[in-house]
């Protein structure tokens, strides 16, 4: 088996201190391999979102280690963390998070703008990403003028544009009707299969979890052993 892309050992995350102390994660061990699709499922408050935030290096664990490409991330400074998130990760959120008044192209190229890519290259790559998702003709539209499904395609284009190794999707279909949701799911799994982009999906949708290579269930800050077996793809 290839070495894990992301490897998590004895991960703890505690919020607050003293009487108000809350243990969101209480010792998680998890390996995510290159090219797989992983669902993190669990009830609200189970700690699944906290786990995703830690995996995506948006937050630092209280204790435990997260290695990315074999590198321990706890030693990285703010600058390296920013660079890593920008270059390695793509994000798809339930609430789109598009800048409503900016154009679709401007929204999609945001990670490249942050990376300091020249404007000409940003435009070319942005149009290519939109073309890949079949919404190239919307490039000049205001993000606000799109339908929910179109918005989520824009979000996926944005997640793709920096050619990430991992896409983190937090309830990607939560805001979409079932038809549109299914289309978006297909797009994500297609990217996973054809481009080898690792997919980490946080969801409470059993059907979506079932479509992933693997699903881990989080309850009370721990992985529930019964559901750690491989789920047939």
């Amino acid at each position: 088996m290839s070495p894990a892309l992301i490897s998590v050992r004895d991960l703890h995350k505690t919020y607050g201190s003293g009487a108000g102390e809350f243990h969101a994660l209480r010792g998680i061990d998890l390996d995510i391999h290159t090219g797989e699709s992983l669902a993190i499922v669990g009830k609200s408050g189970s700690g699944k979102s906290t786990l995703m935030h830690l995996l995506a290096l948006l937050d630092r664990p209280t204790s435990g280690s997260i290695t990315l490409h074999g590198t321990e991330t706890s030693g990285l400074g703010a600058r390296e963390l920013n660079r890593t998130r920008n270059a390695e990760f793509g994000f798809v959120f339930q609430q789109f998070f598009l800048n409503a008044q900016n154009t679709v192209l401007d929204n999609v190229t945001m990670p490249l703008t942050i990376a300091g890519v020249p404007a000409r290259e940003r435009k070319a790559r942005g149009l290519a990403a939109l073309r890949q998702l079949g919404i190239e003709d919307k490039a000049g539209n205001k993000a606000n003028d799109l339908s929910g499904g179109q918005k989520q395609r824009v979000v996926i284009s944005r997640a793709l544009i920096n050619r990430p190794s991992v896409i983190f999707a937090d309830e990607p279909t939560g805001n979409l009707d079932s038809n549109t949701g299914a289309t978006v799911e297909s797009i994500l799994f297609d990217l996973n299969r054809t481009q080898g982009i690792t997919l980490v999906v946080v969801t409470h949708d059993e059907d979506l979890a079932a479509r992933c290579d693997r699903a881990v269930t989080i309850a009370d800050g721990l992985i529930v052993p019964a559901t750690t077996q491989e789920v047939a793809a």
Binding site: A78, R79, R83, T84, N86, F91, F93, F97, P111, I114
Partner: peptide
Amino acid sequence: TREVGLMKAMGLSSAK
């Protein structure tokens, strides 16, 4: 707030 949060998640530094 959310726009700033998103840009930071995507790697924009606090200085920027």
